[in-house]
Design a protein around this nucleic acid. Structure first.
Lengths: 156, 156
DNA sequence: GACAAAAGTTAGACATGGCTAACTTATCTA
DNA sequence: TAGATAAGTTAGCCATGTCTAACTTTTGTC
């Protein structure tokens, strides 16, 4: 009943995975959640520095849709993690490792967005979905997205 | 420097989005996180009932890679949310609305996995990435995945 | 049917990432 | 330059989802 069509090979077969493999998958997701905050922040900080000249808590709060105290707290966590450099009441800067992470995240973000757009998804939706998806895309999948993207350029 | 190629249109342009739109995007991601637990559980419970005849906490814990007390606590939250029906020390059943949610999640999961596989990604990676990605795929994107999938069947 | 093992629960701790209220510091402007 | 406004911080609260340790219930076996 849930099978839509038959094309020689079953299109939506449910794979019976080993419990450990499945558990590892969920563990990977939980780990990704732990780095999401850091990734979102450094990505945004890099963006703000580039487009606005500096990254200010008030702007970060506005862009993330959270309140200023949340930003303060999280920025101090990022500082503890060695990703940002900053003095109280001053603008926020990225350390080298923060910069590196930001660049990787932005690159990944752009690829995911471009890939979704190449499927005909509108830009607004692509951006929105990418925000959530990007943290769960493995290197393997990212490469596959990049290649599919190149294909779509050829055939456009 | 980050631009790889030029194909008439810029491939990786960074869109300057309105702050509110961006904030809404992050809010969507945070919301998705709140329903992830429920979705993972009902999806898994449905799967276990189907393949094992019943869903037991010990098995859920094993598959999710968490400890039994975590399952107990979360199951009682699902019960409060009206998604499962259950008595202490007994197996777990889905309510109608739990069943409905589970079916939607499983369908979405299968589409995401099949779509990733259609890009040439190996099944193990596809399953792993899908676990994280599926919670952040909008209806629009899901439909696009489905259509790309149909295309890939034609050209195989 | 008793008892050991397995399954499940309860209690209590912890980290994360939100929030409000109240305070401090910086900036702008009359 | 003083005072008002905006920006940022601190303190303390809450929900989520994880854990360990200790307890209870169920199941299986002799």
């Amino acid at each position: 009943m849930t099978k839509l069509q038959s094309h020689g090979r079953e299109p939506f077969e449910t794979v019976d995975r080993a419990p450990e493999a499945q558990a590892e998958g969920f563990a990977t997701v939980r780990q990704a959640h732990e780095s999401e905050m850091a990734e979102d922040y450094v990505e945004l900080i890099a963006e703000l520095i580039e487009t606005r000249g500096e990254a200010r808590p008030v702007e970060i709060a506005e862009r993330l849709g959270v309140k200023p105290p949340t930003v303060t707290k999280n920025i101090s966590r990022l500082k503890a993690a060695g990703l940002v450099r900053r003095e109280p009441y001053r603008a926020i800067f990225l350390t080298d490792s923060g910069q590196e992470l930001a660049e990787a995240c932005r690159q990944r973000h752009r690829i995911v967005v471009a890939f979704l757009c190449s499927l005909g998804i509108d830009e607004e939706t692509a951006e929105r979905d990418a925000e959530g998806i990007e943290h769960h895309v493995s290197e393997t999948t990212l490469v596959a997205f990049g290649q599919a993207l190149k294909q779509s350029w050829k055939h456009e």
